[in-house]
């Protein structure tokens, strides 16, 4: 294993997965890649809301984006804190649907394994992220560790 990806969101929901991933990376002497997905599906999620004014709709989408950016920063700090003594690591924020973005990352062979907490992204995601691990299990061919 040369690269391990870990999905993190800066909350308790990804704390155990991050500890597991750091240990695994040390054991395998692998590069650790932290990922936060900035969910771009919100406009679609409220898509049929035809009667909101343009300002109200755009104001809401800007607000959600701001909240997700704050969450991304929390995730980055969480990752930097957990990998302080493991320099072979990097952190990325990916835009997209959480399941599609993580599956895409694995599909492109950017990591050899993925670690994620069962409840990751739930504090900032749409209801369908409840099924994130289940969706990834269906499409990811590499080892997937769900904690």
């Amino acid at each position: 294993m040369t690269t391990i990806a870990v999905a993190i969101d800066g909350t308790e929901a990804s704390a155990a997965a991050l500890v597991f991933a750091v240990d695994k990376a040390r054991l395998e002497e692998a590069r650790l890649h932290g990922v936060f997905v900035l969910d771009t599906g919100w406009a679609d999620f409220i898509g049929n809301d035809w009667q909101s004014s343009r300002n109200a709709r755009q104001g809401f989408l800007d607000y959600v984006r701001g909240e997700l950016e704050k969450q991304s920063e929390r995730a980055r700090r969480q990752f930097v804190g957990a990998t302080a003594d493991w320099p072979n690591s990097s952190f990325t924020t990916l835009p997209g649907d959480p399941a599609e973005a993580l599956a895409g990352l694995m599909g492109r062979g950017e990591a050899d394994a993925m670690v994620l907490g069962e409840a990751v992204y739930r504090t900032c995601g749409r209801p369908s992220v409840k099924n994130l691990a289940k969706q990834l299990k269906k499409v990811v061919r590499q080892p997937l560790f769900v904690l």
């Binding site: 919100w42 999620f45 409220i46 049929n48 809301d49 009667q51 909101s52 109200a56 709709r57 104001g59 809401f60 607000y63 959600v64 909240e67 997700l68 739930r122 504090t123 900032c124 995601g125 749409r126 209801p127």
Partner: peptide, 26 residues
């Protein structure tokens, strides 16, 4: 009032967490 439009209009004013708004909308 009127469902999604009202949720979208209210969320920023009360600093609602995105996940909370998503559950309300769903």
């Amino acid at each position: 009032i009127c469902g999604v439009s009202a949720a979208v209009a209210t969320a920023p004013a009360v600093e609602a967490k995105p996940a909370h708004v998503a559950y309300a909308i769903a």
